[in-house]
Write a protein that binds this DNA or RNA. Structure first.
Lengths: 332, 332
DNA sequence: ACGATTTATGTAACCCGTTACACACATTCT
DNA sequence: AGAATGTGTGTAACGGGTTACATAAATCGT
């Protein structure tokens, strides 16, 4: 591989001058600049990022920690981050944490050792204290980590309310909720939003809430049991789209018409919701946009811009599709 | 950050000895080893990967180039690669190429500059000649690049044949094909497999093959037109699962029963196929396993193991689900 | 006309882990 | 006993780009 010293020799200048040309730093005479440029082209010289990183203690690399890229919510998120960062000259290291604190630690260690410039993290388990050990710019995506860390997410409680109200608006009288995992804050918030709407209704009972663990199959099973115990249920708000899919499958195997006998709404707005029959209504998150803004803020933090915004709560939007396109007209 | 020199001072030895302890290289007295280990623990020393990379010209990092992580085929693939590599001490840089040769070039340039140790590539556009410029171990996944580059993929033609035969086996008389993009080799191979089975059948005509471009919506539209022009069609082999989903939606909007009036089979075996109603039959690829083996081979190549296998053709398996669970019993 | 700036370029130290080489002492072999 | 080999540790060069500092010529101000 050709080095800066080869270029310097080829152009009959010092390495410092070549470095100045490459980085547009300091003073360089126009003629010298051209001479060096020509030498660089002739030798097809590409500066060695590793050497630069060593001196500058930065790597133009960031880490993205997500629970599992296989979960259909994350590819878009990762894509948004990666798209923005590559434009800004950063590359992205992908880390699948499986929400496992040990793996998160391992990845953070590796990142630190590689002089990673910052991280975008989706996690429930990482806490502020752990991050302090690593001392690098961090932004949180989808789930907040700590109030001092810029967070890019929607208002999940509000979304939960909107989903539940929507079911009411189309005439549902008994609305159940398939709940995400206890440890995941956004799942709890969506649940709280549901409670905000229903907890004072006379018909509401605790057994209308069942755990689905953000898992399709578990949700399908839970829904079967729920509907067998409570055939009066005519609307289900699932804590995310994957679980909503499970609900849909359960309804189908019980020969329950959706939406006529049972309306279903999910949460997240992943592409999957458009692919089912009936198509799923959902509370849609601006996933791509959130991730781009998170990436922008991370870059701003890395580059020391003090005006970096401290996070952003995005609006979620109700997307009504067939699964809540009820024939029962606004009874409420 | 603490350096190896800090550790050396703390343990009253030379940096060389500390390095020997860290890397289990050369001779180190047992007592010295303990002394150094204690110093490392006290100072919480973590060696700086960048400095090591600079000297060793290797980074314990590999690049993964995929067209688009948002395409549901790739997350599993990426996950398999990442899972294996992290175990082996490598981190993964994710690159979304959008099949764009310029982006691919850009990513390869960045990889080279960062001393990336190797790459796992899914691409139609990258050719051997381009790769030679970069001179790094490469393995191809899902699509072959060149015969000298280890490739991990299934026999797509064979899969295409199996899919088409399966439709025949369940009694389909007129089988159409929704075809993937022309430039993508595996799409052409699946098409060829289809032709192998049908081209000599008296009923076959060219208009039974329509382009779907690996895109759900395009396939849905194409299917609508196809079925309106040829209502006699009773089986469709879609070149991938995403297109099969489009076919399914088209059938639904035309009020055609699946599988009674129209049987559908996809290709790839992504999770999505289990989530629809009816569930989709498909030719399943061992995606995760393929990617793990690709990663294993890449590591072997990087580490100079000459016994690295030169690629592997994996078996694909027919998964019969509701979409081809025809009432017409084996008529053939 | 002379000091203060600006422009231009080079030398060498620096970032930090690795390893070639040198040196010293302890064993083992003949 | 003397050579050969094994064990243990340190010094310093190395990888390649960056930059503090030094030097010097050109330009400016008054």
């Amino acid at each position: 591989m050709t080095t800066i010293r080869d270029v310097a020799r080829e152009a009959s200048v010092s390495v410092a001058t070549v470095s100045r040309v490459i980085n547009s730093n300091g003073y360089v005479n126009e003629d010298t600049r051209k001479k060096v440029g020509a030498a660089i082209d002739r030798l097809k010289y590409k500066p060695n990022s590793v050497a630069r990183s060593l001196y500058k203690k930065e790597s133009k690399t960031i880490g993205i920690i997500v629970p599992d890229i296989t979960n259909p919510y994350f590819p878009q998120l990762v894509r948004g981050v990666e798209d923005h960062l590559i434009k800004k000259g950063y590359t992205s290291i992908l880390c699948n944490s499986d929400e496992d604190p040990e793996k998160e630690r391992l990845y953070l260690d590796v990142m630190k050792q590689k002089y990673v410039d910052g991280a975008i993290i989706v996690s429930n388990t990482i806490d502020e204290r752990l991050l302090q050990e690593y001392d690098m710019p961090v932004v949180a995506l989808d789930r907040s980590i700590h109030k001092d860390i810029p967070t890019f997410a929607i208002d999940n409680r509000d979304g939960g309310r909107a989903a539940t109200k929507h079911l009411q608006d189309i005439g549902c009288q008994r609305i159940a909720h398939i709940k995400g995992p206890e440890q995941i804050k956004n799942a709890e918030e969506r649940y709280t939003g549901y409670l905000d709407v229903v907890k004072n209704q006379s018909w509401f009972r605790d057994s209308y809430v069942v755990p689905g663990d953000y898992d399709q199959k578990k949700s399908a099973r839970a829904t079967m049991e729920l509907l067998e115990a409570h055939p009066e249920i005519d609307g289900i708000f699932a804590g995310n789209d994957v679980m909503a899919l499970g609900v849909l499958k359960a309804a189908e195997s019980l020969n329950i018409n959706v939406p006529e006998e049972l309306a279903i709404i999910g949460f997240d707005g992943i592409d999957l919701t458009e692919m089912t029959t009936p198509e799923l209504s959902t509370i849609s998150q601006p996933i791509y946009q959130m991730s781009v803004e998170a990436a922008e803020t991370l870059v701003a933090l890395i580059e020391g811009k003090t005006n970096a915004q401290s996070g952003h709560v995005f609006p979620s939007t109700l997307i009504q599709r067939q699964s809540t396109n009820s024939v029962k007209e606004n009874v409420t």
